[in-house]
Simulated scan of single mutants.
Amino acid sequence: MGLVVPTDQEFRKLFKVQGAYIQDGQKVYDLTVSKFGDENATSFDLRDFDGVTSVKDQGNCGSCWAFAAVATIESSHALINKEKLDLSEQSFVNCVDNSGGCSGGWYDFAYNWLLENDAELALEGETPYQKVQNSCTLYEGKSNVKISNYNFIEGNPSTEEVKNLLVRHGAMAVSLDANTNEFLNYKSGVIHTMNTKPTHAVTLIGWDDDKQAWLVKNSWGTYWGLDGFGWVGYNTTGLTGFSWVDVTKNDAAPEPKPEKELVEIDFVHALGSLQVHQELYIQVGRNKAKIFGMNKKGVKYHNRIYVPKGKHNFLIITTTIIKKDNKKSMLFGVSKAKITVKDDKTYKLVYKDRIKKSNVFNLTLEEDDIKVD
C-alpha cells in the first residue's frame, strides 16, 4: 500500500498550481485531445489499444502512488507517441516533494514535480527500482517523456464522466481501500467491499457494463488477481481520487506526400526563447485532426497537411508550454480560417491579440519569413 491522502491545504495548493498552469485554456485544450475509444461502448479495455504497459511489483515499499503515476504516464506515452517504455518509479520515490518515498505519497504530487522541474522520467534500466528512497538526481536523459497537462477530478465523478476521461487521456490513477480480505485475496469476480478511507493507488484501464465494474491494474505483481488485473464495482465506496495525465507529443518524421492529386499546406514554426514545447492541432472540415509536436530549439518545423484544391474550413489550435522565471504555463492560439486552396502554400503562425485578457490568443496566418541559425 502506501497512499497518503493530501490535506485540504495541500489539495488547494495542487489546484492552484494546475489552475495557474492552464489558466483560461482548459476548454481550448479539451478540443485538441484525441479519442482512443468510444465512451458509449458497453466495454472498453486500453490493452486493446496498446495503451497499457506490463504489471509491476512494488514489493515491501509503500510506493503504490509512484507506480500508479508511472503507469498513467506510460499509458499516455504509448497512446500519444505509439511507443511503450518502461519508466522509472524510483525517480519519483527519490525526488517527489510532499511524498515520503516508501513511507507513502500521492500521485498528483508526482505529476506536479515533473511539471515544475521541467523534468523527464528516467528509463527503468537507468534508475532501477530498489524499494528504498535514495537521494534525488534530476534526470536529463533520452526518454523524451514530459508532462503536457494533468488534472485531479474533485468529488465523486459519475461513471459517464470517468469513461469520457478514460478514452481521451488513457489510464487514470485512482485510490481505493486495499485493506480488506476481498481485495488482499482477490482472484476473480468483482470487488465491492471497501472501507471509505483509501489506502492504496491503482490504475484504471477499462470498464464492463455487464459486470458493472471498472478494470484496474495493480502493482503487486502478476500473482495478485487476474495476472495483476482486477475488477472493482462502479460506485464502490472508497473508490476515489481520479487523476489523468497527458504527455507531450514527440517530434515525428514528416509523412510523404500522397501520390494522388492533393495540395500541400505547410504550417511552419520555430520555438521562441520562452517556449519549451508546442503542439499544433489542425482539423480540415470534419476530417480527423492532425497533431504535430515541436520540442527542439533552433529548428524550423514544417508541419504539412495535404488537401484537395478548393475551399476548406480550417480549425487551427496551438498549445504552447512556456517557461519564465523557472515557472511553466500554457498559452493557446486559435484560428478558424476559410482558405481557398489552389497551389502548395506555406504559412507562418503568428499569435495576435489576446482574447479577453486570457492566455488564449487569436492566430493569424502570414507569409513565411522564419530563419534559424
Rank of each mutant, 00 (worst) to 15 (best):
H77Q: 12
T72D: 13
F109N: 06
A68H: 01
S91N: 14
V93L: 07
L166C: 04
A66S: 15
K82P: 01
S63V: 03
D108I: 08
S91L: 08
G59E: 14
T53D: 09
G105E: 06
A68C: 13
N164A: 03
E74P: 13
Y129F: 10
F67D: 00
S148V: 01
L166K: 03
Q90N: 10
E116R: 11
K146R: 11
W106P: 04
H77M: 13
G104T: 03
L115Y: 04
I73E: 12
K84A: 10
H77R: 07
L121K: 08
N98C: 08
D57L: 11
S75M: 12
K131D: 14
I153R: 07
Q90M: 06
K82F: 12
S99T: 15
T137Q: 15
V167H: 01
V167Y: 02
I153L: 15
L114G: 08
D97E: 08
A71D: 15
S148Y: 07
D57M: 07
L115I: 05
I147G: 05
V96T: 12
A69M: 11
A66K: 13
G125P: 10
S54D: 13
V55C: 01
E161P: 06
S158Y: 02
V52L: 06
Y150Q: 10
E154C: 04
L165H: 06
S158P: 03
E160Q: 09
H169N: 13
F152T: 04
E74C: 15
A69P: 12
C61L: 10
S143Q: 05
V96H: 02
P157H: 03
S91E: 11
K163Y: 11
A66D: 15
E126G: 02
W65S: 09
D57F: 12
N117V: 05
Y129L: 07
S99N: 14
D57E: 14
Y111W: 08
V55S: 09
S75W: 07
F92Y: 14
I147S: 08
G155D: 13
D57P: 00
F49T: 04
C102G: 02
K82D: 15
A78W: 06
L121M: 08
W113E: 13
F92P: 02
D108S: 06
G170C: 07
K146L: 02
Y129G: 08
E74R: 11
V132I: 08
